[in-house]
């Protein structure tokens, strides 16, 4: 039986809303990763780290 797309789960979200929210979480995590990668590159260049 295909799940009801409008069913509201205990957290107050529908399945579609949960997927949408998770998309934002993943996007935010990717942004954090890119900023962190840049910071590590700068740390490698500007500090004695790993040298």
């Amino acid at each position: 039986m295909p799940s009801d797309p409008d069913k509201v789960f205990p957290t107050g979200l529908t399945a579609g809303q949960a997927e949408e929210l998770h998309g934002y979480m993943i996007g935010g995590t990717r942004s954090f990763f890119m900023i962190s990668a840049l910071a590590h590159i700068l740390a490698y260049i500007l500090t004695p780290w790993l040298k």
Binding site: F9, P10, T11, G12, A15, A18, E19, L21, H22, M25
Partner: peptide, 17 residues
């Protein structure tokens, strides 16, 4: 993974994360 928000309230899960 997105279905975690059907189990964990975002008002709890996001601040914890």
């Amino acid at each position: 993974n997105g279905k975690m928000w059907l189990v964990v309230k975002p008002t709890v899960g996001i601040p914890l994360f």
